[in-house]
């Protein structure tokens, strides 16, 4: 129960941060990605602010202890070498992000706005995720 509350709090903080930083607006994100146009550097400061909080706590506490404050093991991905799927996946994601100006967090955070274009984006994203899941599963069998 406690861990459901902490997860809810994390989601609330991230959603609030995305809204306050205006990253929920695809116009702002596309303004950052548009380096040939009237470039908008806002996204750099958002990422910078997030890294300034995450990096020291991770490097000074989590890396050393590898456990949560509730003394349970942290699930940290292996830092193994980049492979073909990482490269192809990042490129496909980049094209999709460049077309829409929306990545998964801002897409979901926009749902309560009731905009049908956001519903179309999120639905397509969920279909894309499930398509990958089924494809990976059928390849494993």
């Amino acid at each position: 129960m406690l861990k459901l509350l902490t997860a809810l709090m994390s989601g609330l903080l991230i959603g609030a941060g995305l809204t306050i930083s205006t990253m929920v607006d695809p116009k702002r994100v596309l303004g950052f990605l548009d380096i040939l146009g009237n470039w908008d550097p806002t996204l750099i400061f958002v990422m910078g602010g997030a890294l300034l909080v995450y990096m020291p706590v991770y490097q000074l506490y989590i890396k050393k202890h590898k456990t949560t404050l509730l003394s349970e093991p942290c699930q940290i991905p292996d830092n193994h070498k980049a492979d073909k799927s990482l490269v192809v996946g990042a490129i496909l994601f980049g094209i999709g992000w460049g077309l829409s100006g929306i990545c998964p967090g801002p897409g979901l955070a926009n749902l309560s706005g009731g905009n049908e274009k956001i519903f179309a984006f999120v639905l397509s994203m969920l279909i894309g995720m499930l398509a990958h899941h089924w494809w990976a599963k059928s390849r494993a069998n």
């Binding site: 709090m9 903080l13 991230i14 941060g17 930083s21 400061f45 995450y54 404050l69």
Partner: peptide, 20 residues
């Protein structure tokens, strides 16, 4: 932008600190 970013960082690190 910095304040919003810091909140995102805080939410992200608390998911690691409490939920691992």
């Amino acid at each position: 932008a910095l304040i919003g970013g810091a909140l995102i960082g805080l939410g992200a690190i608390s998911l690691m600190l409490f939920n691992g």
